[in-house]
């Protein structure tokens, strides 16, 4: 991939992102994993996990990281600029014509459709992530019979743990990663997963 190619790729992702970080995941997945085969599914999940752990917006981190993996520092520049460009052009225009934009009936109707649609995107992101953590094979293997379907016990346990401590105890995301990450590292080191 060239610098300009990466820029365009992430520009496209930026243009179709509504509702922020998690809703971008299926877009990233289409472009980087299924579309161009730039990354494997576990690599993709690692990328997004790292993007969550580092400071700054998840979408931008993911673009920077994916760009770096392709072309080094220049790739990171292309990814970052590409994913920011829609905000700097489209959003700036909207900001300038703010009042007319917000009261337009058609703009509101389009958004009334897209907003619930982004929930579908976030829900689909749960499946993509589950396929590279809790599940041992893509969900489709249940009905296509390709690949052996199974569940990772450790993955499922870490999922339940995170769900509980995040929802009920309001644990900080970094503590959660510290616990699940170090238990995973220990189990992996002793060959238990």
């Amino acid at each position: 991939m060239t610098f300009f190619g990466l820029f365009l790729l992430f520009f496209k992702i930026g243009v179709f992102t509504f509702g922020g970080g998690y809703a971008m995941i299926p877009l990233f997945f289409d472009e980087l994993v299924t579309g161009r085969g730039l990354l494997t599914q576990p690599e993709f999940a690692n990328l997004l996990s790292l993007a969550q752990m580092t400071p700054g917006p998840v979408g931008m981190n993911a673009a920077t990281y994916a760009g770096f993996r392709q072309l080094g520092v220049w790739g990171a520049v292309a990814g970052t600029l590409g994913v920011m460009a829609p905000s700097l052009t489209l959003v700036l225009l909207v900001g300038i014509f703010m009042n007319r934009f917000q009261t337009n009936t058609y703009v509101r109707a389009v958004l009334d459709g897209i907003r619930p649609g982004t929930i579908g995107l976030v829900a689909a992101a749960v499946i993509f992530f589950a396929e590279s953590s809790i599940l041992r094979a893509p969900l489709q293997s249940l009905w296509t019979g390709e690949g052996k379907f199974g569940i990772s016990l450790f993955g499922a346990a870490a999922f339940c743990f995170t769900f509980m401590v995040s929802k009920y105890l309001k644990w900080n995301i970094l503590w959660i990663f510290l616990v699940t990450g170090s238990v995973g590292a220990a189990l992996g080191y002793w060959g238990l997963i």
Binding site: Y22, S49, V122, A125, F159, I176, G181, G184
Partner: peptide, 30 residues
């Protein structure tokens, strides 16, 4: 192997966090 295990743990945690985000969004938007 240790790094792979660590990532598996973190990925599973992220799955749960996105799941929670989806539930929250659902309640706010639908």
């Amino acid at each position: 192997r240790a790094v792979d295990g660590m990532f598996l743990g973190v990925r599973s945690a992220v799955t749960a966090l996105i799941f929670l985000a989806a539930i929250k969004l659902y309640r706010q938007t639908i």
